[in-house]
Every structure is written in C-alpha cells, then in structure tokens.
Write a protein that binds this DNA or RNA. Sequence first.
DNA 1: AATGACATGTAAAGAGTTACATGATTCA
DNA 2: TGAATCATGTAACTCTTTACATGTCATT
Lengths: 169, 169
Amino acid sequence: MERKLLLLGMLRKQEMHGYQINEFIDAHLGISVQLKKPTVYKLLGTMEDDGWISSREEQEGNYPPRRVYAITEVGESSFQRLLRDNIAAYQPSSYLGNIGIVFLDALDSEEAIILLAERRQKVMGLVRELNNHEELVEGFSMMLSYHHQHLNAEMDWLDEVTDQLSSIH
Amino acid sequence: MERKLLLLGMLRKQEMHGYQINEFIDAHLGISVQLKKPTVYKLLGTMEDDGWISSREEQEGNYPPRRVYAITEVGESSFQRLLRDNIAAYQPSSYLGNIGIVFLDALDSEEAIILLAERRQKVMGLVRELNNHEELVEGFSMMLSYHHQHLNAEMDWLDEVTDQLSSIH
DNA sequence: AATGACATGTAAAGAGTTACATGATTCA
DNA sequence: TGAATCATGTAACTCTTTACATGTCATT
C-alpha cells in the first residue's frame, strides 16, 4: 500500500505517465525508496482498474505514445485514508538487514573496527548523495530530513560502538 | 541471506530445533525481526540440504520428536562470510514504510500534529517494550542499543517536525 | 551504423506470509 | 472436556524483482 500511496501522492501534484514516474523515482528517490519499473506499471494498472486513477493516451511528435494518469475522486479519498494510516502508524523498519551487529562479538575487535569503518564510509556516502539531491527535489524535503536523521543515528551508533571496541583493545 | 545469518548465529551458540528457534524469535526479537515459523522451517531445510547445518532427531517423554540442528564447519565458514558482508554493508532500511511523511503538507497542521502524536506514542510503546526485554536477552544487547538509537532518532524527528508545525499554527 | 533515450509492457522466478493440516500431551 | 502447549510441516497466495520483448527516434 505504501507504493500506491507514493504514486497517488505524485499524481496528486501533477498528471504523469509511467516512464516519467520511473525517471523521477530513479533520480530523486532511488536512495530511499525501492520501487521498480514493472511494479510501477502494474500498480498503475490495478489502480486504474479500481478507479483510483484515470488515463488518457498522449503523443508528442513521433515518440511512442504515453499513457498519462490522473488521480480521480475515489483515488483522492484513498490517498487521504492511506496517508493518515501511514503517518499514524510507525512500522519499525525491519532490523533484519542489520542482524550482523548482533554477532559482532564473533569477530576480534580489531577486525570489527575495520568493518564498522567500512560501513561508516557507506553511510557517509549516502549522506553526501542526499546533500547533492537536496537542491533539486521539491516537496520531498521532509523525506530528506527524515532520512538524514536516521543516517545520523546510524553514524552516532557506529562511532559509539567503535569507541567501545577501541577502548577494550 | 540475513535470515540465514540469524539462524546460523543462533545455532552457533547452541543446538536448537525449529520450534525453539521460533519461540526465541517471538519472545525476544519479534519487535525488531520479521521471520515467521514456516520460513524458519524452510530455511533450516535448505541449509541442511546445503550442508550448512546437520540434524538429529530427539524425543523427550511422549512429546513430539524434534529435529535438532547444529552448525557444521561449512556452515561456520558461511556464517563468517555472511557476517562480514552484513556488517560492512549498510543497507538503508527502505523508507517506503514511512513515505507518508512526504505528503504531510497535504494535511492541515492541526491534524498533522495529532497524527504525529499518535505515531509518537507507538514509538514510545516500542521503546518501553525494548526496555522490558533488556534484562532477558543475552548476547543481543548490541541489537538493543542499535534499535534504541534509531527509535530515539525517530522521536527526535517527530518532535522537531511537530514543533515546526506548531510554530506555524 | 550503433548506442542510448523514449515508452510500454509480459513472463518467470523468488522470497515470505497466511492459512491450513495433524496429532499427542498437559493443565484448568 | 476443552484449551493451550509442543512439534512439524505443506499449500496457496501475494508482492516484487529480474529478465525478456518490442520498436521508434535522436545523437555520435
């Protein structure tokens, strides 16, 4: 449902076709959001079947025709409902992806420190990417500050654990 | 692979059977980790097929027989590899679940503040749950501090945004 | 002449989850 | 007697992704 919420939210601001939506996601949300081309097309299809969005065909020059989608009234009320649900509900982002930290003690602290440093660099890389996007994206600043906040939390945690390990070592 | 890493890490500390693993996850990791019973049984099956773990049948009294799994040498080296990969790689936990915050501006600030407060309470609830578990779980303290750090980041962000909205209002 | 952008989609595969199925045992 | 615990699993379903398919147009 989150993906539908995202698409509805985008179509609410302006009519768009699939290719355009994909481009936007790749360019501006790729870091934070996982939503691939075929999924977009599929979701657009089912949302149209459900009457959440409507489409018209459009052609510019001799380029392939596009299917341009617009949100309907039904879609708008779905959006309103989904939005409230999503904001009010905090779904803890599964910590499975980071399960390795549970077993940090399986490594000697020297190697652990090296691996954590590697991880830190990747986090830093994401922070930098975010900062670069910052100018371009309009309306997505909330997402950016949110993402920033959590990346900083990750960095702080890494530094703390690294310090602990260093002091033992 | 994260799920396999978790299971290997558990079996590394002690031999366990499926039911026991499920119990542990439900009791101690349910908040942070999503890994359901049938998945556990399936993963145990495939890991045995791959020679990562071995099993023996055991029966206590008239209870149903259990299949008790132990990690093999092959499994141990898989664990070592998976662990390093997992720690060194930071995979940003998909922000899709929180996509609603992008569209906060679709609500009037009064309602937004209410919804954010609801969300905050849910986060607080998780913090409390974590604190209750804190005594029980051994070896999972890293996970707890990690989870804590990120929940605090979530709370700080919520407070910040709420303040912003309040000051406008 | 070839590559990449433009544009839409389908098919197959993968990973997990929910719901279902089974059956003995213990406790209230 | 009925419910909960112990214990293992299968089947069907959902959601998403990767890989495939197609064809024009613009650029190098």
